[in-house]
Design a protein around this nucleic acid. Structure first.
Lengths: 195, 195
DNA sequence: TTATTGATTGACTGATCAATCAATAAACGG
DNA sequence: CCGTTTATTGATTGATCAGTCAATCAATAA
């Protein structure tokens, strides 16, 4: 059965399987065997393509962050003016493909890992700085630069908090309510800034 | 050297050591041996008193939640009127003994575990409901019941988000800034509610 | 003094799992 | 068709670690 050019197919499948397997078994408990089985291959093949469990997990984290980033960039490109750009960032953070149980579980697990794993920490840092500078840049066109920092930090904390709390909520995530909550916060802050 | 009545001493030491060891080694990587060594005893003794790693970890989580709860209750008892009570809850969530790196790491790790571990999930649920009902009860005296729910959820998400983001921040946690951020959010929401 | 109980350890075991590797087989290139 | 590359597996290894246990020692009680 061996077809050629399977590498990208397997890599994608394994990364997707890793997200699901982390959700099902928990980050600490999940094994290469479980991930590989979910992707429909042997554990040996997972090692063949990724070298080690840590590298597969790091690739998975990189994938999640880049997908989330892409959602935001795509919405930013359609936004007009700073206020819409802020909304684009907020909505991007709750994009349907991202704000779902398995992704939320994996994302949180990587947050925890980022503390002890240098690679994970670096990736998180890059992503967080980019998000923040995007927000600050646009907010600074609406309020003072000083307040823009405060509002960006507040909005970012609120977004992360909503993701975090979704981990323990039962039932499907409600992106609309989440977005409304953050939009409300930003609107209130901007109103005051204009007074 | 065996003295009598060591059980409570050892239990406390092991729970404290678990928090520190999780912070140092990471939740997934930490072993009973490392925790026991930090507490100055053998791994065998840790099993003797707690039965299993899972039970020691669950006891640690219970301890963290109850300490945080105690900080809030203590501030609530000194508060007068609903507005002060809301502030008491906020300040309690950033009490100096709790809002520090090792505790934050462990707390977040337990959050992740709560997804797959029934015991951890139950504990978290109890704590979260209590916190929420406390907030809603007092907020409902300041704004409509409906808005009280929204503000309580927003404030709780903000608190959790600030804790979460502290995991990756370098340097000592800044409780004062954190409290100011949540107080600002609540103040803004209450102002609107009164309009 | 002599049992009894509680505290404690270090050695042991059994299971798990990441990582390696040799073997196999299909596709392809000449 | 024959050699090379790519894909894939299953068996194996080596390390780690949770959990158990017998043995030891001190304090207390009878």
């Amino acid at each position: 059965m061996p077809k050629l050019g399977m590498e990208p197919v397997r890599r994608r499948a394994l990364i997707g399987a890793a997200v699901e397997a982390i959700h099902e078994h928990g980050f600490c408990e999940v094994t290469m065997g479980q991930i590989a089985a979910r992707a429909g291959v042997s554990a040996g093949l997972a090692h063949h393509y990724f070298g080690s469990k840590e590298q597969l997990l790091t690739a998975t984290m990189r994938h999640l962050l880049s997908e989330l980033g892409a959602e935001i960039v795509s919405r930013l490109s359609r936004a007009e003016g700073p206020r819409q750009r802020v909304s684009a960032v907020i909505a991007g953070n709750f994009a349907p493909g991202q704000f779902r149980p398995a992704v939320i579980s994996a994302w949180l697990a990587f947050y925890v890992q980022a503390e002890s794993l240098a690679d994970a920490r670096r990736l998180h840092g890059i992503y967080a700085r980019r998000l923040r500078s995007n927000l600050v840049h646009d907010l600074a066109r609406l309020v003072s630069r000083e307040r823009a920092f405060a509002v960006a930090d507040g909005a970012a904390a609120l977004v992360d908090g909503i993701w975090l709390r979704q981990v323990l909520r039962v039932g499907e995530p409600d992106a609309a309510t989440a977005i409304a909550m953050v939009e409300d916060y930003v609107a209130l802050q901007l109103e005051r800034g204009r007074m």
